[in-house]
């Protein structure tokens, strides 16, 4: 079983407090929705193995607390992440406007600039939307992210969000190869020129 796991990917979930990060994760890993989900303290951690296009990947997912006060603590966990899920709550505009701060934070603390970002607008099952899909799409395009709307409660879009993200990471070999496989980049060009006379032939 373990042998055919392609690689372990580190995924990060960030966003304002209460947008449903932990709920999304629980939906993804255990396919349940727990209305009794407590506010996260520090970081939480879950593992799930998924198969995308026949590639198996083990996901180590770090769920961070959105709480202002924990912010000083959580960025430490950004290190080495290959993918990040930014979550906002479609029924609370301010959770969307705060996304810029989260992106800044990512930029500052993330150790790799090629990580794959996915924007998730959560809680679409609710009625009082303050955000429409187009706004989310626009923001995602502007920052070269994947985008999806989802509901942890009804499971809409949740599986898909994680799968898309993983697929994208796997398509970006620089993101995972350097770790598990030693396929480095050739630094020097192979010396050309052989044959009896070589390419460069001068008189003296």
């Amino acid at each position: 079983m373990e042998e055919d796991i392609l690689t372990t990917l580190k995924i990060l979930i960030i966003g304002e407090s209460g947008v449903g990060k932990s709920s999304l994760l629980l939906r993804f890993t255990d396919d349940t929705f727990d209305p009794e989900q407590a506010a996260t303290i520090g970081v939480d951690f879950k593992v799930k193995t998924i198969s995308v296009d026949g590639n198996k990947a083990k996901l180590a997912i770090w769920d961070t607390a959105g709480q202002e006060r924990f912010r000083t603590l959580t960025p430490s966990y950004y290190r080495g992440a290959q993918g990040v899920i930014l979550v906002y709550d479609v029924t609370r505009r301010e959770t969307f406007t705060k996304l810029d701060n989260w992106l800044n934070e990512l930029e500052t603390y993330c150790t790799r600039n090629d990580l794959v970002k996915m924007l998730v607008g959560n809680k679409i099952d609710k009625e009082n939307h303050e955000m429409d899909r187009a706004e989310g799409l626009k923001f995602a395009r502007k920052h070269s992210m994947l985008f999806i709307e989802a509901s942890a409660k009804t499971r809409d879009g949740v599986q898909c969000a994680f799968e898309e993200l993983v697929e994208k990471i796997i398509q970006t070999p620089g993101l995972w190869q350097s770790e598990s496989h030693g396929r480095g980049v050739q630094l020097t060009d192979e010396d050309a020129g052989n044959g009896s006379c070589g390419g460069y032939c001068s008189l003296v």
């Binding site: 407590a38 303290i41 951690f45």
Partner: peptide, 26 residues
């Protein structure tokens, strides 16, 4: 630290314990 936290596993109990271990600041 993340190793320690990760070792607690992914059960609900693990989650609870993790939260508790990080609650010093709270």
């Amino acid at each position: 630290q993340s190793e320690v936290l990760a070792k607690l596993g992914t059960s609900a109990e693990g989650t609870h314990l993790r939260a508790r271990m990080q609650s010093a600041c709270l």
